[in-house]
Design a protein around this nucleic acid. Structure first.
Length: 540
RNA sequence: GCUCUCGUAGUUCAAUGGACAGAACAAAUCUCUUCUAAGGAUUUAAUGUAGGUUCGAUUCCUACCGAGAGCACCA
């Protein structure tokens, strides 16, 4: 019994009435007292028919009559038709979930490549990267859950002014960490024209690999960076199938833009730069090859699309970045449409919000960003303090800390900024990762102590826990379609609350039905947490 | 100045054009001889302003006010 079936039943009734079977809207009502499905057809039709909506609704209900899986139908409010599903239906759904874990097959065998995180070598991995990583990993898992074959990709900047600034700082003072060197380099760059010139020259040297001393410093830095990133990915429970470096895209980028220059897609601008005029598409002009002859980010992104397709013949390419480059992406996708139309058609860009401190934007340029590592460590310290009497595994503390952080990132829709409140993100009460983990640990603990075999039969009555459990596949589908993990977070939080309520009011261990229900809950919670990239410890 | 995004309880976030705008935090009260109290129960509080479209608007349109991002060689 799904939404579509309810729709069909209504359509049939409307045909019987001789009414125009316009689109019958069916939805799951927010309010539990409004049935399992609800339709507003009567409201929409009443004006056309010139009748009171309640009368129309009653007429429709009469025409529908008895239906399989539907226990009762009633007219409520201004003329809504509410459908209540039968007990057999819910028990059947729960059995299905226990069997297939609520997976769907909407993306079966699709090849999808997902790019996210994108840290820059020689710079710290700050909490903005952590945010991108948590979002990207969750979206990857949602897509995998739908049956797709996912390749995770991260694109790392290893050339460009930012890198040159860091190398410059390190050359000036070898005692600087790479982070400090970068901040110093950025400051120097802005301080004087002479410094600026020097850094631009250095950038060129790095790019051409023409200076041995510079190469050595640069190579050391790159090696350090990759090792450092690897350790963080491991901690976060993510991995990448492809690490692509910006330098790899340079030649391809140039080639594509040169070709486009001949075709008239690109133009020559001031100082010999090659530009794309976005104005005729309602966008703005952007530089693709700068006056030094080096491709910019926009051009390299064109090359990157080709590189990715060369590695993996994808059906879809998803790119996840901060939303501050949303406008650039529009321009570059517009250019891509001209140059690589078949790849552009498969590309989807998602811009997520930024981590902000209450006092403003945090930036690695000015050195105000907190590193991912120090955040994890700080949260972990608090977890350890809280769990010291519980004799838990060491990695459980880390799982809880990372769960708390990921939850606070994923709980809101990804487009908006997160005002980062340290105190709040480590709170373990209410809306939080540990709340979900705790509910799961409780459920598994009861299951361990169960004195009877689980059996999904003889349900005394179908309560809100049962109903909510059966919504899982639908919620997953929505989150996947919209690339919005926060639907999963909201759902799991509500589910955990429902379970904790059930737990507080029923003794589970000695009832076959309740044990089976708890089992269904634990399966869904575990899978739901997996979708968020949050570990589900059995004890905490 | 132009373009884009966004204004919801004291705070941080929800709400395919639908029923009484949901949670959490903060505050108050109650609740462990029962399977994990990091739990459960109860109480208070909000759609920036002015119009419009609609049976019905937090949602769509217009103007204004306010915030953020972007607007030629950084990403």
């Amino acid at each position: 019994m799904v939404k579509e079936e309810v729709k069909k039943i209504i359509q049939k009734a409307l045909e019987k009435m001789g009414a125009e079977a316009s689109e019958a809207l069916v939805e799951v009502p927010k309010e539990k007292t409004h049935g399992d499905y609800s339709s507003n057809v009567a409201l929409a039709l009443s004006k056309k028919l010139g009748k009171n909506p309640i009368e129309v609704a009653q007429e429709i209900v009469a025409k529908i009559g008895e239906q399989k899986n539907i226990e009762k139908i009633e007219v409520a409010g201004p003329g809504f038709i509410n459908f209540y599903l039968s007990r057999e239906f819910f028990v059947g759904e729960l059995k299905k979930i226990n069997k297939n874990f609520g997976k769907n097959v909407s993306l079966k065998n699709k090849k999808i490549i997902i790019e996210y995180t994108d840290p820059n070598i020689l710079k710290e991995f700050h909490i903005g990267h952590l945010m991108s990583n948590a979002i990207g990993e969750s979206i990857s898992r949602l897509i995998e859950f739908g049956g797709a074959k996912v390749k995770r990709t991260t694109w790392q900047s290893d050339v460009g002014l930012g890198i040159a600034k860091a190398v410059y700082g390190k050359m000036r003072n070898s005692l600087y960490s790479w982070q400090d060197a970068y901040v110093f380099g950025t400051k120097s760059y802005e301080e004087s024209e002479a410094n600026k010139k020097e850094i631009v020259m250095l950038n060129k040297k790095i790019f051409e690999r023409s200076d041995k001393a510079v190469n050595k410093l640069y190579d050391e830095g790159k090696k350090w960076s990759l090792k450092y990133f690897d350790a963080i990915y491991k901690k976060l429970g993510t991995h990448f199938d492809y690490l692509i470096f910006e330098s790899e895209a340079v030649d391809l980028a140039k080639k594509i833009v040169q070709e486009g220059l001949k075709n008239g897609v690109f133009q020559t601008g001031e100082n010999g730069a090659i530009i794309f005029k976005g104005e005729k598409f309602g966008l703005h002009t952007r530089v693709f090859i700068n006056s030094e002859g080096l491709p910019t980010y926009e051009a390299k992104e064109l090359g990157l699309a080709k590189i990715k397709y060369g590695k993996y013949k994808y059906d879809k390419s998803v790119i996840i970045t901060g939303n501050d480059i949303n406008e650039y992406f529009k321009v570059l996708l517009c250019a891509m449409k001209e140059m690589l139309p078949e790849l552009e058609a498969k590309t989807k860009h998602i811009g997520h919000g930024n981590m902000r401190l209450p006092e403003g934007k945090m930036s690695s340029r000015s050195g105000t960003a907190m590193t991912a590592e120090s955040l994890i460590e700080k949260v972990k310290e608090l977890v350890v303090e809280k769990t010291k009497d519980r004799a838990l595994d060491k990695n459980v503390d880390e799982q809880i800390a990372i769960g708390a952080i990921k939850y606070s990132i994923l709980k809101q829709s990804i487009g908006s900024d997160i005002i980062y409140d340290f105190e709040k993100s480590i709170s373990f009460e209410g809306d939080s990762g540990p709340y979900l983990q705790y509910s799961y640990a409780r459920a598994t603990s009861v299951l361990r102590k169960a004195t009877v075999k689980p059996l999904l039969a003889g349900a005394p009555e179908i309560g809100s826990l049962e109903k909510l459990l059966t919504h899982f596949p639908k919620i997953v589908a929505k989150a996947t379609d919209e690339y919005e993990p926060h639907y999963i977070v909201l759902y799991l939080t509500e589910l955990a609350r429902e379970f904790n309520n059930y737990y507080a009011h029923h003794t589970i261990a000695d009832s076959p039905y309740r044990v089976a229900l708890t089992q269904a809950f634990s399966i869904i919670m575990k899978n739901g947490l997996w979708l968020l990239g949050i570990e589900a410890p059995e004890k905490m």
